[in-house]
């Protein structure tokens, strides 16, 4: 049985195929056949973009469309994937995928470009509780992105720079727009870039941490979303949460699509 998960974001479409294999009679899951499609301005119709991404991924995996038994969509544009059999929220898909990858974790921290949230999941990866700060760039990756531009560093350099600092500078501004002026004045007062980078990432981490504390930290912590790639943020998050280890799954950007594919398989089994 092969199922598919489609993560329809605002800028990218990600597809994951999941195959159930019979190994010594016990079903096992194999995944990894995946495709990523960047949306271009000409793909303004999201349904078209989803279709194109799906076709490309099928071709890449050498799977025929009729071999797929069930498709579940997720992401902000999940309702626009017309050929999906069902859809699931990003929160549900993210938690399912994260717990599948890191079975020892029950606390899922999801920090993408546009939102940050804390999710408490059970052992099956089902969402028990979650708290988020959507639609405000201050508690999300966009805050760090914007400040890295002000510092004229790539997001990667920005994260690495932060690791070289041991200073703690509080950021007063909560809003990304106001924080930019604050960063500019820090630059003018000759504050080292690494200290500013750390101040910014500490600020995002403390906001995300407040959301995680609302659901409570249980067992181990796994981080998903774009900020997984930012080692400085991971460090700041560890300190803010007061934990020794934060799991970072492989292929973090496909976790939600994987979760959707897993939920598709659950639905098929039920």
């Amino acid at each position: 049985m092969i199922t598919a998960g489609i993560d329809m974001g605002s800028r990218t479409v990600k597809v994951v195929f999941l195959e159930e294999l019979k190994v010594d009679g016990a079903p096992q899951l194999r995944w990894g056949v995946k495709g990523k499609h960047i949306m271009f301005p000409e793909d303004l119709d999201p349904d078209q973009a989803a279709d194109k991404a799906f076709e490309d991924a099928l071709k890449g995996a050498g799977i025929a469309r009729d071999q797929i038994t069930r498709v579940v969509s997720t992401g902000s544009g999940r309702k626009q994937v017309k050929f999906a059999n069902a859809d699931v929220t990003e929160v549900g898909a993210g938690a399912r995928g994260a717990v599948f990858m890191c079975p020892t974790a029950k606390t899922v921290v999801d920090v993408g470009a546009e939102e940050g949230r804390g999710v408490k999941a059970n052992a099956e990866g089902k969402v028990v509780d979650f708290a988020g700060n959507e639609k405000c760039a201050a508690g999300a990756g966009a805050f760090a992105e914007s400040m890295s531009r002000a510092l004229q560093l790539s997001l990667k350099e920005f994260g690495e720079a932060s690791l070289r600092s041991d200073k703690t500078i509080p950021m007063n501004a909560q809003c990304t727009v106001f924080a930019e002026s604050e960063v500019v004045s820090l630059i003018h007062s000759a504050t080292p870039k690494e200290d500013i980078a750390k101040a910014v990432l500490d600020a995002v981490a403390s906001r995300v941490c407040a959301m995680v504390r609302r659901v409570g930290i249980e067992d181990e912590v796994v981080l998903i979303g774009g900020m997984v790639h930012n080692p400085g943020f991971v460090q700041s998050l560890k300190v803010a949460l007061g934990v020794d280890k934060v799991h970072l799954p492989d292929m973090p950007e496909y976790i939600s699509a994987l979760g959707a594919a897993l939920i598709a398989a659950d639905g098929e089994a039920a």
Binding site: G118, D129, F130, A173, Q174, R207, A210, R214, V215, G216
Partner: peptide
């Protein structure tokens, strides 16, 4: 005053 959503979280669990 600018961070109540985060500061009050301990008294306002998600449940």
């Amino acid at each position: 005053r600018r961070s109540l959503a985060f500061d009050c979280t301990d008294c306002k669990p998600a449940g």
